[in-house]
């Protein structure tokens, strides 16, 4: 929830995965997630193949086969959103707790959703950890995202750490002015008062952000900015990139086939 842990997730490296063109990595990760999402519930064999693929790709990055696995539990709390499925989907009974009946079909669907989500997160982690964010943005633009949108996201990334620091300073100031009560006793005033203080901090940050953007715009204009961000010509994909992409798509197509047929 608190993203002030803003260490960029990118890990430097020179593995085969690191050296792939960002466009290939983006397309590959998105295709993987699409296939995982489209697979029917209970296609355990196909899920196993996809999981094996995440392990192989993670091992190829040189960061260790388990590194994506270790970080892949971020989406787990959302499982609560689907937790009623085993009880609400009609089907053969598996177990009974008082008035609640757990059905086989419901449990299969719930487990499938969790596995799909977990596989998708792992592939997204591999992409983020092996691609520097500026390269990722370059890839997005080369894949025909609107240049203005990519430029906005680039600016956001550039000033993310600056504004997060400002937010941290505000929170440190609040903490140093607030006495912490004895354990179990609430510090600070009423809910209304605490909300107002937090709101004032956000308002303060709004003004700082606004005025910073005005200064940035003035200095950009002074250097000749006219509203367009230009980009160098996009290099062509190498043979290695094409081979990786074709191999990956073939694997995903076969996995999808196995998932739908068997």
């Amino acid at each position: 929830m608190l993203h002030i842990d803003l260490a960029d997730q990118y890990r430097r490296g020179s593995s085969r995965v690191h050296r792939l063109d960002p466009r290939v990595k983006l397309a590959g990760a998105v295709l993987f997630i699409v296939v995982a999402s489209a697979l029917p519930a209970g296609a355990w064999g196909a899920y196993g193949l996809l999981f094996a693929a995440t392990l192989v790709v993670a091992a190829l990055t040189g960061l260790g086969a388990g590194f994506a696995l270790k970080r892949s539990f971020v989406a787990l709390p959302f499982a609560l959103a689907a937790i009623s499925l085993p009880f609400t989907v009609a089907g053969r009974p598996l177990a009974q707790f008082g008035p609640l009946v757990v059905s086989v079909e419901g449990t299969v669907r719930f487990a499938s959703i969790l596995i799909k989500s977990w596989l998708s997160v792992q592939m997204a982690i591999v992409m983020t950890f092996t691609t520097a964010f500026p390269d990722l943005l370059w890839g997005l633009r080369a894949l025909r995202l609107p240049p203005a949108l990519v430029a906005i996201v680039s600016f956001m990334y550039r000033y993310l750490f600056v504004l997060a620091d400002e937010a941290l300073r505000l929170m440190r100031a609040r903490a140093s002015r607030s006495g912490a009560g004895a354990p179990g006793r609430r510090a600070g005033g009423s809910l209304w008062w605490r909300g107002k203080v937090a709101g004032g901090m956000v308002g303060n940050l709004t003004l700082r952000a606004f005025e910073r953007s005005e200064r940035i715009h003035a200095s950009m204009t002074a250097r000749g900015f006219q509203g367009e961000i230009r980009m160098l010509a996009t290099p062509v994909l190498t043979d290695r990139d094409w081979n990786a992409l074709v191999g990956w798509v073939t694997f995903l197509a076969m996995t999808a086939l196995i998932g739908f047929v068997f």
């Binding site: 608190l2 993203h3 002030i4 203005a148 430029a151 906005i152 996201v153 680039s154 600016f155 956001m156 990334y157 550039r158 000033y159 993310l160 600056v162 504004l163 997060a164 400002e166 937010a167 505000l170 929170m171 609430r186 600070g188 809910l191 605490r194 909300g195 203080v197 937090a198 901090m201 956000v202 940050l205 709004t206 700082r208 952000a209 606004f210 910073r212 953007s213 940035i216 715009h217 950009m220 204009t221 900015f225 006219q226 509203g227 961000i229």
Partner: peptide, 26 residues
């Protein structure tokens, strides 16, 4: 106009940072 990119970008960074400012409820 030409303010679009710097203004939207910096304010997006602001919203991101502001989402971290919280207060205890109960």
């Amino acid at each position: 106009g030409s303010r679009q990119i710097p203004l939207m970008g910096v304010l997006a960074a602001f919203i991101f940072a502001a989402q971290a400012i919280n207060f205890p409820v109960a």
